[in-house]
């Protein structure tokens, strides 16, 4: 069953067309990778899907519902969460607070109920405790216990990446968009990241779309791969087929010298 369908989207910035008439569909429960050289338009595709950009034309539907052009918070509420290439964390807040923000949409109490926040049996306090338990589940899943109460700017880069992943997971999304999850990680951290991503799909059943430059990671996790260049689809298919495809090799390495 196709959970995310992107049809003929176009996105330009002034004279530059970043995405040209791109279509693809992601099935429920699969790990779908998008690869391509720098500037190919991969991140622009993510930004269109989760509402940071509004595509010039084309439609994006999620779970059968048209989400093209909705605001990012509406799309997040619908069940799409993401991480960023260059980390977008709430850096002065603690790991726990970052994860609790992932629970923001599910935390349901009004501004009036907030007034009784300090009483143990109030709706607000019960909600806070419930969301705290959910956040603690994520902390346990990603083994973030040592960093729970530390502001995230003080954490090592690899841990910050995990916190961002955790925040996205805390939203209990149906689909998770990961923008270069292994960028800036060392070999060991990258191996760990591969395990986390596989665990997220296998244990939590979350569909994953991943943008990545590291071919090792792409090979290890992907069910299907989409290669794009200059905002256009080059080829789509299994890992082996895509990585062996002549157009993909040309996109990365250029024309062979005569």
């Amino acid at each position: 069953m196709e959970i995310l369908v992107v049809e003929n989207i176009v996105k330009g910035f002034g004279g530059v067309t970043a995405v040209q008439d791109l279509s693809f569909a992601v099935s429920k429960g699969e790990i779908y990778s998008i690869i391509g050289p720098n500037g190919a338009g991969k991140s622009t595709v993510f930004n269109c899907i989760n509402g940071l950009y509004r595509p010039d034309s084309g439609t994006i539907s999620f779970g059968g519902r048209d989400i093209t052009g909705l605001n990012p918070d509406k799309i997040a509420t619908a069940g799409i969460s993401r991480t960023f290439q260059n980390l977008e964390l709430f850096s002065r807040m603690t790991t726990l607070q970052n994860l609790l923000l992932g629970r923001h949409v599910s935390t349901t109490y009004s501004i009036w109920q907030m007034l009784t926040f300090n009483f143990r049996n109030s709706k607000a306090a019960k909600q806070e405790i419930l969301q705290r338990e959910k956040a603690e589940d994520v902390i346990e899943f990603l083994e973030l216990e040592p960093y729970r109460d530390r502001p995230v700017f003080s954490l090592p880069y690899g841990v910050q990446k995990l916190v961002e992943l955790g925040r996205a997971l805390a939203m209990e999304p149906d689909i998770l968009l990961l923008d270069e999850p292994a960028a800036g990680l060392n070999h060991e951290e990258r191996q760990d990241m591969i395990f986390w991503i596989q665990d997220i799909r296998n244990e939590l059943g979350i569909t994953i779309v991943v943008i990545e430059h590291n071919m090792q990671l792409v090979k290890d996790i992907s069910d299907r791969v989409l290669a794009i260049n200059f905002g256009q689809k080059l080829v789509e298919g299994s890992v082996e087929d895509v990585l062996r495809d002549q157009s993909v090799i040309r996109a990365y390495l250029g024309e062979p010298a005569l």
């Binding site: 940071l52 997040a76 969460s81 977008e88 709430f90 002065r92 807040m93 923000l101 923001h104």
Partner: peptide, 16 residues
Amino acid sequence: QAIRDSDIAASVTGIN
């Protein structure tokens, strides 16, 4: 505080 630290991240975590 989320808006203070990163309004992009705030909006993708569902904050209006």
